[in-house]
Design a protein around this nucleic acid. Sequence first.
DNA 1: CTCTACACTTGACACAATGTCAATTGACAC
DNA 2: GTGTCAATTGACATTGTGTCAAGTGTAGAG
Lengths: 202, 202
Amino acid sequence: MSSENIETRTRILEATVRILEDHGGRDVRMSDIARATGISRQAVYLHFASRAELLVAATRYLDEILDVDRRLAPSRAATSGTQRLTLFIDCWGHYIPEIYGVAKALLLAQETDEAAAAAWDDRMQAMRDGCRAAIEALHSEAKLAPEWTPKGATDALWTMLLVPNWENLTGNCGWSTRQYVRRMKTVATRTFIKESIRPGKK
Amino acid sequence: MSSENIETRTRILEATVRILEDHGGRDVRMSDIARATGISRQAVYLHFASRAELLVAATRYLDEILDVDRRLAPSRAATSGTQRLTLFIDCWGHYIPEIYGVAKALLLAQETDEAAAAAWDDRMQAMRDGCRAAIEALHSEAKLAPEWTPKGATDALWTMLLVPNWENLTGNCGWSTRQYVRRMKTVATRTFIKESIRPGKK
DNA sequence: CTCTACACTTGACACAATGTCAATTGACAC
DNA sequence: GTGTCAATTGACATTGTGTCAAGTGTAGAG
């Protein structure tokens, strides 16, 4: 039955997300996912053509559950560029830890797999759009620091917020999510907002 | 003869560095290195126990050639924290493109190999020391922005300067080395130096 | 001149993990 | 009952690392 089909597919995705979170996205084989789902390794291939396709589907599945659009609403509704920037960092900083396992797996798969690379790239471009929107908002209010063009500032902000940086700061440097959010706001505020009108600490 | 031995070893390292630079550190197999050296694949294992060991040796070999210590001298000799910070970024920004191929290969190997991970980590800790020295210099002159502790600022500066960020900015964002250096100085200066005494654009 | 040492070669193989293929099982629907 | 379809089992191709064993060629030592 087709509902069986879909049910199994969903069970695979659930197991994939769970096991990737557990293992931080590393050392998870197709056979591990199959075992966690309770089916044979080959059965996974009846639903997903390749490991990369499964990872991409798991990413989408997780995003649906986490409801990214709703999370981004506050930033989109911001009444100033400064607010938009800090609310975006808030949103992103709390989002990363929830997707980290799956994101890391995709990030690793990206090195060897075209499809995974494209999926990751697509995701990161969406994040870049959020950065650009915040920078554009600042720019249109003439609050962007004079050293920056909107494009340069977007590049810099985007890069700072990339997952490997979060990984380094929370993993190797021991920052908490709270510290990450607070300090990335500090970096972004100090770096991009013209000092004459810069607000004090949040 | 032992000199033959060392000569071959050096030829392998030369070929490794060359081929890694050519390929941006990706898709370089032991057999490719052997072919580029002009020996059999197995002969490479007579000189290096594993791919990771070869990559680590290639990194050291390249560092010898590039004379990292000499390059760092200006930053070390800086008379102010601000100068130390910007000279460090200068040095680092011009160093990365020269080591990128080998660094990227080590970075990729790191994901699957303990020894490569340790070697990379060691290298990055050395870079972190440079960051810490610059931040400490600022701190001791009371020029560090009040939002930051020395440790937090070191973490943040270190993370910003990591290789994957350079990769994203120069690769995906199209920044030149000149732009990278200039803009990273802007980010670091604006982020970490107390505004009352911050200098104008370099 | 021969013996030995040594770097290197050739070819075969173990090992992981992905992905493919073919034959089979079991359940449900008509 | 028969066909359909998901899933199973087991075998196999592939790719790259790393290991092993036997053989080649050269150079120095006796």
